[in-house]
Design a protein around this nucleic acid. Structure first.
Lengths: 167, 167
DNA sequence: TCAAATAGTTTGATTTGCAAACATTTTATC
DNA sequence: GATAAAATGTTTGCAAATCAAACTATTTGA
């Protein structure tokens, strides 16, 4: 069990995850670019503002299947945030690239992130800043580690198991 | 613009949000209780392990409509994680309550959170712990504040606006 | 050349969500 | 007490996001 102060900490932590997503949704989807969802913004983010990317590459970055990406890109092309064309060298490959409007949305999104970070770090002294950065990095690593661990377990389970709910 | 160290911080921060959700998904949905999604777990969480709650109450806690909750509960009842019955006093009201299996899943989920927090806090000294708790609380408050701000803006926009994308 | 591999798309299904229409029950008003 | 208004859920129609599997087109390798 956790003591009350640690419980507060846990609650804050969880609420942050909920609220960051909700805030992003509110902040970016509802103001300008009100026709973009969070998922669509993340797709624009994964494509990035520079060279054209392939479908598989982008799907892998997002951790989704190419099938899912295809329909997402259909919509983003319809809404004029993304351009799609076949690669001239390898005609199996499809290239996607942000349009002017897509880049604009991308930059707005990046700006939101920058603002969030700035506002968090600016009021801190140099030492405290370093400490926070260190701690966030630790959290990041811990979570990544956990993710890995559970991914392995999942693989192991899938290898033998065939369902069975009661632990 | 952010300096490189702050950029790392930003990246860590964002990756945490992605990974926490993914890890929860992996950790809890794929091991035991493999038939529960994150959203469903959150519903169990919102119902809580004690007294029976009403639909509206639970929907409000989750920030979804009662219509959405109705179909979610349909599924959870079918999967035997939740019981549903009409209130005897006020027959408009529907009460929902976790079954034994539902409570089990609830406790597993809570345990995951506890473990996460413990692992984060345990290696820290008393001072550092306090500092981290303070910082996480600050982040929480900052995000909540942002959320509020954008919610207000949204209301204002909805009051007049009628669409227009180019900033 | 032709089979295998690769890159995307299409299709059918599920989950999650909203808004609006609806049904039932309670409360308040006349 | 009857009836209109309010409250509580459910149903329906729709859209987004996702996957798996079947499919198409193209390239590569044997």
């Amino acid at each position: 069990m956790l003591n009350p102060s640690d419980q507060d900490f846990a609650k804050s932590l969880l609420r942050i995850f909920d609220n960051v997503l909700l805030t992003e949704e509110k902040a970016l989807s509802k103001g300008y670019f009100s026709d973009l969802s969070i998922a669509e913004l993340h797709t624009l983010e994964a494509i990035g503002p520079y060279e054209a990317r392939t479908m598989s590459e982008t799907a892998a970055r997002l951790g989704i299947t190419t099938g899912t990406l295809t329909v997402a890109i259909d919509r983003l092309v319809r809404k004029a945030y993304v351009e799609r064309y076949r690669d001239l060298k390898d005609r199996r490959v499809v290239r996607i690239r942000l349009t002017r409007q897509g880049k604009l949305a991308y930059r707005m999104h990046a700006k939101f992130h920058t603002l969030l970070v700035k506002r968090l770090l600016d009021p801190l002294g140099e030492q405290e800043k370093e400490r926070l950065i260190r701690l966030v990095k630790d959290i990041d690593e811990f979570i990544a580690e956990q993710y890995h661990k559970y991914s392995e377990e999942e693989k192991a389970l899938k290898a033998k198991d065939s369902g069975g709910k009661e632990p």
